[in-house]
Amino acid sequence: MNRETRGYDNVEVGDCLPELTLPLTPTLIISCAIASRDYQDVHHDRDLAVARGSKDIFMNILTTNGFVGRFITDWAGPEALLRKVDIKLGAPNYAGDTMTLRGTVADKADGVVTVEVIGQNELGPHVTGKVEVTLPAAAK
């Protein structure tokens, strides 16, 4: 991640964030589900997930939030403050797929930058949304 915090004055509407590509391994999906204390079987037990009509185990929503947050602060830096994460959920993130997160600065006002985010896998958009993050005036 970026260890320097980006300055608000150095960010322009239209700036693109570095992409984050995530191979969705069973280990990733399961370790994140357990770290978020979400023990629903569809997030760790392939046989039960298939029996319930899913293709495979799939990522839980808490994890999607976690990756969206990380995607923003990897770019913005450690002293950026997350204010709001507003996401719409789409295609499931099944094990074996890959999700790529992309983001663009959509707005900036009063020290707060709004980034539009989309995370796509081979089925289509898994997550789309907006994140509001407060940045210091100058990089630090």
């Binding site: 991640m1 260890r3 990733l28 370790s31 994140c32 357990i34 770290a35 978020s36 994890t63 976690g66 990756f67 947050g69 990380r70 602060t73 990897d74 450690p78 002293e79």
Partner: peptide, 16 residues
């Protein structure tokens, strides 16, 4: 400890 488990799983290296 729970923060650390989460950061490991998400691979979030934010030092704060």
């Amino acid at each position: 400890p729970m923060i650390r488990h989460w950061c490991d799983a998400i691979d979030d290296q934010n030092p704060v």
